[in-house]
Simulated assay, not measured.
Amino acid sequence: MRATVIHAPHDIRVAEVPDPTVRMSTDAVVRVLRACICGSDLWAYRGESARQPGQRIGHEFLGIVEEAGADVRLRKGDLVVAPFVWSDGTCDFCAEGLTTSCPQGGFWGSVGSDGGQGEAVRVPFADATLVKLPAEAAGDDRLLTALLALSDVMGTGHHAAVGAGVKRGSTVAVVGDGAVGLCAVLAAKRLGAGRIIALGRHQARTDIAKLFGATDVVAERGEAAVDAVRELTRGQGARAVIEAVGTEQSMRTAVEITRDGGAIGYVGVPHGSGTGLDLGVMFDRNIALRGGVAPVRTYIPELLADILNGTIDPSPVFDRTVGIEGVPDGYRAMDERTALKVLVTL
């Protein structure tokens, strides 16, 4: 089968790899219909996170169950979506909803695992990991695209909004105009935010933010952005702030635009040498920090219901489509910021 592998920085290839097979009675093999490229994949692409030459890559996909182990309740032909981490569904962390801390869990594309950007994937703990989708969705391209966002970006944006304490009537500021930041805008709107300030400089992206519910856009960066947000909030800042980038500068901005007594929900994958956090400032101003890697599997059922009933539609974050052979071009486009998020159809 064909799958995406990484050999070195800026060296993404599509190669023949062994077909996945059921190894354990709790495994399933999923034939991928839709996959995509994540902003976090770019850290490996740019050489900022280590990968072994020839390692599989990609962690977002949905598809059809092709084969199921003896202990799997899902059946051949079921349409399913996979969160970006598999989990056993039985440990203490899974019971608490923190599926990303499952001791037997793992990330697609990690050493020794299948990556999501390929024609098929072996899924450990299939019943605990996969979520069954309505069969009729397979014939609806727009709906399939919206459902694919459940594998990562929609759930991650929701996790940030929950961490920031967004509730009905909240004033929210979102730092980051990537797919996760935009989905965080959508998540904040879904939770009833009264005002949503999106920080971003690219009009195509801030137009999506407005579509998703942003009431204000701040195009400035650094201290100018802080001043702009404070001007919009009577000098106080936003009570709920979402950090969806992961750089020292973005976190510093998040802290500075947070209202005293407010909270930051952070989901930007940290990179760089600094954190942008000053605990003394946060202590003095009673600012809370909550977030981290999103337990997307826990959020899928509630978000799925709202996609199916039309309450939310995250599909606009996908602005370019390629086939499996076009994945290397998709990486280049996202790296050059000529694409927001690349959809892969198989």
Rank of each mutant, 00 (worst) to 15 (best):
G63V: 00
W43E: 11
G89W: 06
L98R: 15
L98P: 06
C91R: 03
C36H: 01
T99V: 15
W43V: 09
E48D: 15
L42H: 13
A44G: 13
A44F: 15
R73L: 07
T99C: 03
G97M: 00
T90K: 11
V80W: 10
E66Q: 07
G97V: 02
V81N: 09
A95F: 09
L74I: 12
T99D: 07
A50P: 10
V72C: 01
C94T: 13
A35P: 01
G58A: 11
T100S: 13
A44T: 15
V81P: 10
G77P: 06
G39C: 03
T90E: 12
E48Q: 12
Q52R: 09
A95T: 15
P53D: 00
R46K: 09
C91Q: 02
I37L: 05
F84Q: 09
E96Y: 00
A68D: 08
S40K: 00
G54A: 06
D41C: 04
S49V: 08
T100R: 02
V80L: 04
R73D: 15
A95P: 12
R75H: 10
E60K: 05
Q52S: 12
Q55L: 02
Y45K: 01
G97L: 00
A68Y: 10
G69N: 09
P53G: 00
A44D: 12
G54H: 01
C38T: 11
R56T: 04
D88R: 10
R51C: 07
P83Q: 10
G47S: 04
R75Q: 15
P53S: 01
C94I: 02
